[in-house]
Nucleic acid binder design. Structure first.
Lengths: 125, 125
DNA sequence: ATCGCTGCAAATCTTTTGCAGTAAG
DNA sequence: CTTACTGCAAAAGATTTGCAGCGAT
């Protein structure tokens, strides 16, 4: 994979975000730094980078895929009210990880996707 | 919600299936019993029935949503090779359920989606 | 009789792809 | 120099929606 200017900046910008943008949301953000970038390239590069593990692709619930520059061990919660995706880094992460890992071993699954849903802090008020 | 002929037959046919069809796959199947049904109504009714909990909507990985007439406690594994979705009723179900339930309580999440991926029995050969 | 449901077709939304030019190795 | 990557635009794929007529209550 060639390291092009677009990819460098794209990766950089995604890593900066705490949000988990969809391709088209990210396209708008990225245009501020790369005014000529096309939506097609955004799709291609998000796909390419996630396939190498440099970013994470979130494929759960809802129509649009979302992308996460944070590849550390954590899960996500989607807010039923506003649609936002929040990180979950809590205590449960390791407990969940253990059980899922064990089931994957037992059944020789490769891995899994897990996403919570609920109401985010902003929407609870 | 009115109990129409379409809904009765649609629910009936979905419950019969062990597969987890997409809306368009199910449309083809349903046409054998309801030759005049439209794809739009299939979408509307699968959505309506899943929102009442009478069927399950699987929203994880991959582009198309899938539907499951079996609402009992189980998880799913998507085969990376053939794309099929298989049921997982194994021992891990209760273990997973416990951990996820606990995390949901701790964090006041409403629920979660979990999907495994791997290689199905047919494709392993 | 009312109002939600239906089939149909068109519209919308998301993602992918063909192509000719450009830039990284 | 070669080959992958890019922007653009068009295509493809999935789902939703407007509408006029129909059917369940």
């Amino acid at each position: 994979m060639k390291i092009t200017m677009q990819r460098k900046i794209l990766l950089d910008e995604l890593k900066k975000l705490k949000s988990h943008p969809t391709a088209d949301e990210f396209f708008v953000i990225l245009r501020k730094k790369l005014p000529k970038v096309s939506l097609g390239s955004v799709y291609r590069n998000l796909e390419a980078l996630s396939s190498t593990g440099m970013i994470r692709k979130l494929e759960c619930a809802g129509s649009q895929k979302r992308f996460d520059g944070d590849t550390s061990d954590h899960y996500h919660m989607r807010c039923n009210a506003c649609g936002k995706v929040c990180d979950y880094f809590g205590n449960g992460v390791s407990r969940i990880g253990e059980v899922l890992k064990k089931v994957c071993e037992e059944e020789s699954f490769i891995g899994c996707n897990l996403e919570f849903f609920g109401t985010c802090i902003n929407c609870k008020q």
